[in-house]
């Protein structure tokens, strides 16, 4: 791989630069996965991603990766421990099944952002499309803008914070994920209800917004969660299934 060295003038820590204009995603990921931690730089810059898929996926170490441009599907997929920033928009399934670490999208994110993710923090500074946080299993997701329809569908655990509006069917078939929305909710999905915001919720929101570095007043949000009415199959609920 060429261009494995070089320090961008604006970076504080010397970064290893990989230019996807000349290197492949395979080369990049292989280098990021290299087993010998001592040989590995802790700060990486990825240039010219040009919508490539699977950029910086499957990371396991405490690395910091700045991607300078737009990425395709599954950027930072299954991330563990690493901090990945996309200075652009992200395609489908950004940080899908993330376990830990932080993924930040400076632009907008496509469908299924943070799908099934188990842990860590995902920040989308712009909007996220449909199914944001689908089947989320413990991740925290903070969206600066709005989310599309069926967000947090079957959400099992974790928290979704939406500073804009939510589309149709928010929290459909929700298990135990907690949802906060500042703007309007077009409609709630089956078994998702508004719940009172208590002190502990304000505190949790303040913490999440702070971690996401997003300046919003926790008191402006409403909370939604599972009515737990579909937890056991009952024929009287047939219309909701």
């Amino acid at each position: 791989m060429e261009a494995l060295t070089g320090t961008p003038p604006e970076a504080t820590v010397p970064a290893t630069v990989v230019d996807l204009g000349s290197s492949s995603v395979r080369d990049l990921n292989q280098a990021l996965h290299a087993p010998d931690a001592a040989l590995r730089a802790t700060h990486w810059r990825v240039l010219n991603p040009r919508g490539a898929h699977s950029v910086a996926c499957g990371l396991t170490e405490d690395l910091s990766v700045d991607i300078e441009g737009h990425v395709g599907y599954y950027c930072a997929g299954m991330n563990q421990r690493a901090t990945v920033a996309v200075h652009g928009n992200a395609g489908v399934g950004v940080a899908e099944n993330m376990m830990s670490g932080t993924v930040r999208v400076r632009g907008n994110a496509s469908q299924s952002a943070g799908a099934t993710a188990h842990g860590g923090l995902i920040v989308v500074e712009g909007d996220a499309a449909a199914r944001c946080g689908i089947s989320m299993k413990g991740v925290d997701i903070v969206v600066g803008g709005s989310v599309g329809h069926m967000s947090a569908f079957m959400g099992q655990a974790g928290r979704l914070v939406v500073c804009g509006d939510a589309g149709d069917g928010l929290g459909d078939s929700l298990y135990e994920a907690r949802l906060y929305v500042k703007g309007t909710v077009k409609s709630l999905g089956a078994d998702c209800v508004e719940k009172p915001v208590r002190e502990e919720h304000l505190a949790e929101l303040a913490e999440l917004l702070k971690a996401a570095e997003i300046d919003e007043d926790p008191a402006a949000f409403r909370r939604y969660g599972s009515a737990r009415g579909l937890y056991h199959f009952q024929v009287d609920n047939a219309g909701a299934y």
């Binding site: 995603v25 990921n29 699977s54 599907y73 997929g77 299954m78 799908a115 099934t116 689908i134």
Partner: peptide, 27 residues
């Protein structure tokens, strides 16, 4: 309940990209 569709892809073109992701993650 387990979903009947994958949460982050639908259709054969997406599956192509998903399989590439799985290969990338497992080198």
């Amino acid at each position: 309940r387990s979903a009947c569709r994958h949460p982050d892809w639908t259709g054969p073109d997406d599956l192509t990209i998903k399989i590439l992701e799985l290969r990338e993650i497992t080198d």
